[in-house]
Design a protein around this nucleic acid. Structure first.
Lengths: 116, 116
DNA sequence: GAGTTGTACAAACATCTAGTTGTGTGTAAC
DNA sequence: GTTACACACAACTAGATGTTTGTACAACTC
């Protein structure tokens, strides 16, 4: 159904896989080719290539060209989108000191005359 | 629906859908029942119910019981897992002042004799 | 007890996902 | 030119996801 995913969704869903997060962690130590990325996993080169494509589509990494290989490079700033959303909402929700008040409000809405 | 996804993956993949993010945003304004959550969307109650189940599985929300309805309640702290991972990696990657050096290292590895 | 409301479960279906094997292609190396 | 390597594309599988319609059920209202 999701043909054209929004930016945020594609970043979050790229991060929603342990293999892909491991790839990102590996890339923090330096650029790496698909073959180098494949080594630590019990997966085929093709499978890793697909994960890399997902990360590339989410703009979390980019590729360069060095001879016949195409090393992957982290695009760290891209995490900002995800970090931004989460932080905005963490603050928003943390600021609700009024949890009890709000709960009472919920009950009130459900039982306007307060007959409970 | 099995698969036993790890914690982080289930949070990220719960966040990887605009409808679910909208539900979370709505819940920031106060607890709400499935029917209340359904209203703003052009989706059936059942579809929203399933999205709510995904959020519940990721522990981003919980349900209480008020009479015959089961309002959804935000579990804001649960965002900490996701926020933690992202922040840890943002710092890690941002700290790499040595991007040029690292790029040269990549080239060196690929052409050890420096004959290029 | 009958009707209404809030919600969940079930089956069906289409689409997406994460993997596989097998094959093709571009670049470099001899 | 042949050989070797790094990578991508194609076709396929199994299982998950998103949505629908239809139904069931529990709790309140009358």
């Amino acid at each position: 159904m999701t043909v054209v995913q929004d930016e945020l969704s594609s970043v979050f869903s790229a991060l929603a896989d342990p293999t892909r997060r491991a790839i990102l962690e590996r890339l923090a130590d330096g650029d790496a080719t698909v073959n180098e990325l494949t080594e630590p996993f019990a997966l085929t080169q093709q499978a890793i290539s697909k994960h890399v494509q997902v990360l590339e589509r989410a703009d979390l990494i980019s590729r360069t060209r060095v001879g016949s290989s195409r090393p992957c490079v982290l695009e760290a700033e891209r995490l900002d989108a995800a970090a931004g959303w989460i932080e905005r909402h963490r603050e928003l929700w943390a600021d609700r000191h009024d949890r009890l008040e709000q709960h009472l409000e919920t009950l009130r809405r459900r039982d306007p005359k307060g007959t409970r």
